[in-house]
Amino acid sequence: MTLVPRPFGRLEDGTPVEAVDLTGEAIAVTLTTLGAGIASLRTPDRNGHFGETVLPFTSLEERAACPPYCGASIGRFANRIAGGSFELDGTRHQLPRNHGANCLHGGPDGFDTRVWTIADLGTDPIPFVVFALDSPDGDAGFPGRLRVEARYALTGPGELTVEYSATTDRPTVVNLTNHAYFNLSADAGVGIEAHRLQIEADAMLPVDDGLVPTGEIRPVAGTAFDFREPRTFTENLQDCDDPQVLGQRGFDHCFVLRGGTTEAPRTIVRVEDARSGRRLDLLTTEPGLQLYSGHLLAAPEHGAPPAVVGGPTGFCLEPQRFPDAPNQPDFPSARLDPGRTCRQVAIYRFSKLDSAPDGGAAESRQS
Rank of each mutant, 00 (worst) to 15 (best):
residue 4 V to E: 11
residue 8 F to T: 08
residue 14 G to F: 02
residue 17 V to Q: 04
residue 19 A to H: 07
residue 21 D to N: 01
residue 27 I to W: 10
residue 28 A to M: 04
residue 37 G to W: 01
residue 40 S to P: 00
residue 40 S to N: 05
residue 44 P to S: 05
residue 51 G to R: 02
residue 60 L to W: 02
residue 60 L to K: 02
residue 61 E to F: 06
residue 62 E to G: 05
residue 65 A to K: 12
residue 66 C to S: 15
residue 67 P to S: 09
residue 71 G to P: 11
residue 76 R to A: 10
residue 77 F to D: 06
residue 78 A to V: 14
residue 80 R to S: 13
residue 81 I to W: 06
residue 82 A to W: 06
residue 82 A to R: 15
residue 86 F to M: 06
residue 89 D to A: 14
residue 90 G to T: 12
residue 97 R to A: 13
residue 98 N to Q: 10
residue 99 H to A: 15
residue 100 G to V: 02
residue 100 G to Q: 00
residue 103 C to H: 06
residue 109 D to A: 13
residue 110 G to S: 03
residue 114 R to P: 04
residue 116 W to S: 02
residue 126 I to W: 05
residue 127 P to I: 10
residue 130 V to M: 00
residue 132 A to L: 07
residue 142 F to P: 05
residue 143 P to G: 04
residue 144 G to I: 07
residue 145 R to F: 01
residue 150 A to C: 14
residue 158 G to L: 11
residue 159 E to Y: 01
residue 161 T to C: 08
residue 162 V to C: 01
residue 162 V to I: 12
residue 163 E to Y: 00
residue 164 Y to F: 13
residue 168 T to Q: 00
residue 170 R to S: 06
residue 172 T to N: 00
residue 173 V to N: 00
residue 175 N to L: 01
residue 178 N to Q: 10
residue 178 N to G: 12
residue 179 H to A: 03
residue 181 Y to M: 03
residue 181 Y to P: 00
residue 183 N to H: 03
residue 187 D to E: 07
residue 188 A to I: 09
residue 188 A to V: 13
residue 193 E to Y: 08
residue 196 R to F: 09
residue 205 L to S: 06
residue 206 P to N: 07
residue 212 V to S: 12
residue 215 G to T: 08
residue 223 T to E: 08
residue 227 F to P: 11
residue 228 R to A: 02
residue 230 P to G: 08
residue 230 P to H: 08
residue 235 E to F: 03
residue 235 E to C: 06
residue 235 E to W: 04
residue 237 L to M: 15
residue 238 Q to V: 14
residue 238 Q to M: 11
residue 243 P to G: 11
residue 244 Q to C: 09
residue 245 V to K: 07
residue 247 G to N: 14
residue 248 Q to V: 15
residue 248 Q to M: 13
residue 248 Q to E: 14
residue 250 G to S: 11
residue 252 D to T: 07
residue 252 D to S: 05
residue 252 D to K: 01
residue 257 L to C: 09
residue 257 L to H: 05
residue 260 G to V: 09
residue 265 P to W: 03
residue 267 T to G: 08
residue 268 I to N: 03
residue 270 R to T: 15
residue 274 A to D: 13
residue 279 R to T: 15
residue 282 L to E: 13
residue 283 L to G: 10
residue 284 T to A: 09
residue 284 T to R: 03
residue 287 P to S: 09
residue 291 L to T: 10
residue 292 Y to K: 00
residue 302 H to G: 07
residue 303 G to W: 09
residue 304 A to I: 14
residue 321 R to V: 15
residue 327 N to K: 02
residue 328 Q to A: 13
residue 332 P to Q: 05
residue 332 P to K: 01
residue 332 P to E: 05
residue 333 S to C: 08
residue 343 R to I: 14
residue 345 V to A: 06
residue 348 Y to R: 06
residue 352 K to V: 14
residue 353 L to E: 10
residue 354 D to A: 14
residue 361 A to R: 14
residue 362 A to V: 11
residue 364 S to M: 07
residue 366 Q to L: 15
